[in-house]
Amino acid sequence: MMVQQTTPEAAVSGVTTAAELNVAGTRGPSFGEPIVEYLLRLGDDRLILGHRLSEWCGHGPILEEDIALANIALDLVGASSMLLGLAGELEGKDRDADALAFFREGVQYRNALIVELPRGDFGFTIMRQFLFDAYSVVTLDALASCGHAGLAAIAAKSLKEDKYHLRHSSEWVVRLGDGTEESHNRVQASLNELWRYTGELFERDTIDEAVAAVGITLDRDALHAKWESIVNDVLQRATLTIPEKTVMASGGRRGRHTEHLGHLLSVMQSVARAHPGATW
């Protein structure tokens, strides 16, 4: 992973001034057509976040919430399955969603760093979910009317689900932020820790430019502004404050991850990889 002191826009070039945590090289192995890479980014975000949420199953703070988190996890894994499936089709190397999920290395994963961080306490999970949900809703809303029919259809379906996720996570952020002193402090600490991972969500690079050719043209600045407005509104209701002067982390889109992803994958892929070629 790399650390950049940049606004998201400055990352357009995909080349960064290496900082203290840099790993040599700017990009992991690539996947041919830009649309494939683009779909992997969307699919991997949802797979990894869904996986993290599913770790709560049976361990939630109250039964009702256990069920709610599982619903969100299911929606996310379901969306990732469609996105990876489409990526595999377009890649044309006979890899289906499972092959992409279970037989890629960490450096071949394209998710943003924020989704791979360990689940933390419930406040961390909810704050991460909220920041991601708001990003997902504004992004899918734009993608639902993009010129790539396959992706637009998936986006339209997922958008409905994600709007509910956002409603759920927003309410929880407010409850925790404006709850007890302990809950306020915990969730503020989570926000402080997570904020540096939000810049990556609105980065633009050559892949974003290249997919314009297949009808995908997102105005990241406009999306970022919409996202900020949702986030500011909820954080204000929650009496929480955005940390100042945050150095944004980056790298997931290029396969440069935190160390957490490797551990997640070694668990997730263990059975599938122990029996290559098996059907389940």
Partner: peptide, 29 residues
């Protein structure tokens, strides 16, 4: 929920992962 929840993170396909989450969730329900 616990003995089955134990394998959610290791389910060997996405379809199996989803049906196992849904099943463990049903148990909570």
């Amino acid at each position: 929920m616990l003995p089955e929840g134990n394998w959610i993170t290791r389910a060997p396909s996405l379809r199996r992962k989803m049906s196992l989450i849904a099943k463990v969730q049903d148990e909570a329900g």
